[in-house]
Design a protein around this nucleic acid. Sequence first.
DNA 1: TTAATAACCTACTATTCCGATAGGGTAATA
DNA 2: TATTACCCTATCGGAATAGTAGGTTATTAA
Lengths: 135, 135
Amino acid sequence: MLSKKTKYGIKALAYLAKRTDKTPVQTAEIARSENISPKFLESILLNLRKSGFLGAKKGKGGGYYLIKDPKEIQMTSVIRVLEGPIAMLPCVSLNYYEKCEDCPDEVTCSVHKLMIQVRDSTLKVLGENTLADLA
Amino acid sequence: MLSKKTKYGIKALAYLAKRTDKTPVQTAEIARSENISPKFLESILLNLRKSGFLGAKKGKGGGYYLIKDPKEIQMTSVIRVLEGPIAMLPCVSLNYYEKCEDCPDEVTCSVHKLMIQVRDSTLKVLGENTLADLA
DNA sequence: TTAATAACCTACTATTCCGATAGGGTAATA
DNA sequence: TATTACCCTATCGGAATAGTAGGTTATTAA
């Protein structure tokens, strides 16, 4: 299950991508429009800024704005930053790999093989979709 | 991410499916072989029995055994019983649907559309794989 | 220069879930 | 009738989630 943090983050990015002009948008405006707790959203947008998706401007008329072209932003990268691994098991994760303690051999592990298939099909969908497709 | 409960459950089912004869297998044997905490596994197998995947026999020579043919057991049904929803959001779940409070309209929701695609591709993989394929 | 604005940062909290453990009860077998 | 092994309930520490609170800093406009 996707965390609300990730869901809200995607919604906020899509909100920004929908806008025609790229002037900064305040956290409060996005929060109001998308029904998100303002303070919670604040921490998410900060996260997205630090990860290089958003730029920020302080003071009056300030806010957040997209840095890159929505077409260039794959949903895989968004989800990896907000949620973490896309795979359903650490031992099949490309970016957050961890060995299972209980599993002596990944090659013969039945669950492993299945979860690689799931990972690849998910990766395909999320890789084909960009922020532009959502907006 | 898949819970350990689900992972262990699948491993246990695969262990039973690998056996040629269908005599009962004790919890302790599966736990030893798959490196799972015996007591934890016990609750999982109980769960699988109540869900109709396993049969159980008490007393000496007792244990758990598969009720159905592994070819007939889709991984979707196993995961739904152990983990719950397969979808990444409640609002796109077929079997555990819940409306999002923050979302006024699912049809126009950007995240919703994306997660339906992810759900369908995952469902395809898990539906095509049966317990027999894992064993 | 000062007041207002809005991002930035730190810390805290309530709730829930996960992964397990403990300890006994019940039914079947030898 | 003793042993075996499933059955059931209850508990528990730790981690994560979903926020909340309160103050700091940088920018803008009056």
